[in-house]
Design a protein around this nucleic acid. Structure first.
Lengths: 340, 340
DNA sequence: GCTTGGCACTCAGCGCGTGCGAGTGCCAGC
DNA sequence: GCTGGCACTCGCACGCGCTGAGTGCCAAGC
């Protein structure tokens, strides 16, 4: 077990290292000067040697200072650092900025910009997921005798549409009937419950219409399932330029990961439940993100998280500040969604 | 006026410079070796001096080779290079890839990926614009006694929705009436024509409903106008890492521009009509893109362009190849849209 | 048994001088 | 007007030595 002071030394190292943009490692002398550790550089050196033995810090090259390892950051985040709360003006700014949103796209767009700006990193915001949402309304439009458009509206304001070619012409009356029956059954219900709720619906129709009704229903179910493949928005990629001084190699895989929404969704998905999650460096399953950290948290309109948001930045980041910003933004987005 | 041979020399310089990734300028000896110019290096040197006087090429530093200036690229694109057509296998690949798309988002998504991959640059695809589209259907849903949802469906498969709070409760009958009247007037019509077409619609309703009808109509018109602010999708940002060897400075403003959709839309908008447009370096109004070139072209489902797509890459790019890819993709996307 | 000051050692980064090579401009001759 | 020759220019890579921050170890002190 590490002594109290050694932990203090680790904290000091992380803070100093993160606090500057220079590619410089931090040494014992500088540490004692900037922090009131109450001991001499020599002592700190001993502690640093111990910390290095335990794998919390490392030397980039012999006779240089130390930099934190992923393990070191991990300890820092878990034990040494809290979440830095936003100041009151910051909170007001967040709220004001988000309050101006007019629709779901706008909410997500504003959130992503806000998060990127606050953290000066790349922001990722998942659209409220369909899985946990409920159906607000299902609309059926007849575009041609045997062509129907299905429009699905969710409680989070999301709209999905599908074109359906019917096996047989379908009259306006039947369509209106189906529309009414469908809505009375599924409106306000959770997506997951819809399949059972509509199962016996074709039975209520004339034989000639059953094929079409079945087609419409299966399209609806498909939409519910397929579109659970969730969308997301990213922003602040320009902040990648602040990454390291050894650019192309670091930045390229990150840009690639950001374009692969699948990767990002998996990343957010893996991040446990809705509580704040920090994945540091190699803790990220995706190789391209091995020198980045991902801070994410669930957000939702009620008690329950409907999606996640977060940022991805260099492992050398201000964890308390980033976590504070992410948490605050998630909270306010949740409020906005609950209101609308 | 430049002699035939001097133009040939310029072409050779551009081709050689663009053909390598090294930061090396191209010199007279190397030119004569790689191209059958039929003259000696000394002659080429004279020609190069002349080309430099005219501003088509420049020396990065004394006693180095020459590199093309923006003006040089301009001449190259206008007079010296054609559009390199795609090979048959490439065309098949494009078609196959785009054919798999299931909805509009998918078409745009696939297009952007395809374009990025083919050109190895950053791809930008504008969603089919609403301005030039026609209305396929307008749907009104009653969500609560005084709450109506407006859904607008365009011929390009785009769907926009708006929530409307009515000044007074609005019965289902009136709603159905309004829905029917609306659609009979605007279905199949161009957005631009809608305002006149619905102008006198409130007159057909009872006094108590007129306020609501007016509200609905103004929301519809707003949607038509506001949503003309067009959306776009970008991809292939990872290709930015191939930009220059002097990274951060070049790449940062480009990433920033790419995040500002307004900038990009303006960029595409400025690019004249629907024909292929190439904007080279400083020809781009936006400062951050002064060291990039933008190749764009309109695409559409019929004869008329409904939106634009293109790529942004370094001025040092393979113009014929890029133009070929952009043109081919635009053509096939147009086909796909026409079919659906 | 920690802590501390001292000391020898290491090594990345920097500035500087050198040589190389690609490229240029100019000129006289064909 | 083209060509070969020639002197000149410089960016770049390489090697060198210096400097300074930082380390590890050790013996003395609390």
């Amino acid at each position: 077990m590490l002594s109290e002071r050694r932990l203090e030394v680790l904290r000091a190292i992380v803070q100093d290292y993160v606090g500057t943009d220079e590619p410089v490692a931090v040494g014992s002398k500088a540490l004692t000067e900037r922090h009131r550790l109450g001991v001499s550089p020599a002592t700190v050196r001993n502690d640093m040697a111990a910390l290095e033995d335990e794998g919390y810090i490392a030397q980039p090259h012999t006779s240089a200072g130390r930099i934190p390892t992923d393990k070191g950051y991990r300890l820092f985040v878990d034990k040494l650092a809290g979440v830095k709360p936003m100041t009151a003006p910051e909170r007001r700014a967040i709220q004001n900025f988000l309050d101006g949103a007019v629709d779901l796209d706008d909410v997500v767009g504003r959130t992503v910009r806000l998060l990127a700006q606050l953290t000066r990193q790349v922001a990722v915001v998942q659209y409220p997921s369909l899985t946990r949402s409920t159906v607000r309304h299902v609309e059926l439009l007849s575009l041609a005798p045997a062509r129907v458009m299905l429009v699905l509206i969710t409680d989070t304001g999301r709209v999905e549409q599908r074109m359906i070619d019917c096996p047989a012409p379908f009259g306006e009356t039947s369509l209106a009937d189906l529309r009414a029956r469908l809505n009375s059954r599924v409106a306000g219900r959770r997506f997951a419950d819809v399949p059972q709720l509509v199962q016996d619906l074709p039975d209520a129709f004339e034989a000639e219409d059953r094929g079409t009704v079945a087609t419409v229903l299966s399209t609806l179910l498909e939409t519910l399932v397929e579109e659970t493949e969730e969308r997301l928005m990213i922003g602040g990629t320009a902040n990648l330029t602040r990454f390291g001084h050894d650019f192309p190699l670091t930045i390229r895989p990150v840009l690639e990961a950001l374009e692969e929404q699948v990767v990002l969704l998996k990343l957010l998905g893996e991040a446990g439940d809705s509580s704040m999650t920090v994945r540091i460096g190699h803790e990220n399953a995706y190789e391209g993100l091995n020198s980045t950290s991902v801070v994410s948290v669930g957000y939702g309109s009620g008690d329950e998280a409907v999606a996640k948001l977060g940022v991805v930045g260099p492992t050398r980041m201000d964890y308390p500040g980033t976590m504070g910003a992410v948490r605050a933004v998630a909270r306010y987005v949740g409020q906005i969604l609950a209101e609308s």
